[in-house]
């Protein structure tokens, strides 16, 4: 797992109270999990901005689509946070991405997939579970395509 993946998983573990003795520690709410997923997705989207210029000419529009899809996932997450009574702007702001560097974008995209895989356990009910499943599969597919564009293997048996 990458450093960012560990951070995402660690954030949820902290929310879950893992490693603490207090058995009464509350589990994270859907809203809290969604906030971490939102932060990871915003970080991924920021790193995809302008990355098309680094892609082979035939794949530039595809990379622009990947950026739009990450933005769209962030929008859906923000709406879900608000619907759960949370405040989307409470999601930590992403670090400034290295300017249009494929490795950085891939690392952040991996972290987003990890956040969605980890978060699904806190998303109960039909609507939230459907959202969570969509975020997992879409972000993973996008990561695979991003890797393929830049010749970096990103497909795994167990993404996230």
């Amino acid at each position: 797992m990458t450093r960012r993946g560990l951070l995402a998983a660690g954030g949820l573990a902290l929310l879950a109270g893992c490693g603490k003795d207090d058995a009464a520690e509350p589990l994270p709410t859907a809203s809290e999990s969604l906030l971490l997923q939102l932060a990871a997705e915003r970080a991924s989207a920021a790193s995809l901005d302008g990355l098309d210029a680094r892609a082979p000419a035939a794949d530039r529009e595809l990379v622009r689509r990947l950026a739009r899809r990450a933005d769209d996932r962030a929008r859906r997450l923000a709406a879900a946070v608000a619907a759960e009574g949370g405040r989307p702007h409470d999601a930590p702001a992403p670090d400034e991405p290295d300017s249009a560097v494929p490795d950085d974008a891939i690392e952040r995209s991996r972290a987003a997939v990890a956040a969605h895989v980890e978060g699904i356990q806190w998303l109960g009910g039909d609507e939230l579970r459907r959202l969570g499943t969509g975020l997992v599969t879409e972000s993973a597919a996008d990561l695979a395509v991003l890797g393929a564009v830049f010749g970096i293997s990103t497909a795994e048996a167990f993404p996230g």
């Binding site: 997992v136 599969t137 972000s139």
Partner: peptide, 21 residues
């Protein structure tokens, strides 16, 4: 089980994207 299944679903999504490409 949920996390394992979600991760495997992610893998199939990657397979599908790569096969289509």
């Amino acid at each position: 089980i949920l996390r394992t299944a979600a991760s495997i679903a992610a893998s199939h999504a990657q397979h599908l994207a790569l096969l289509r490409r």
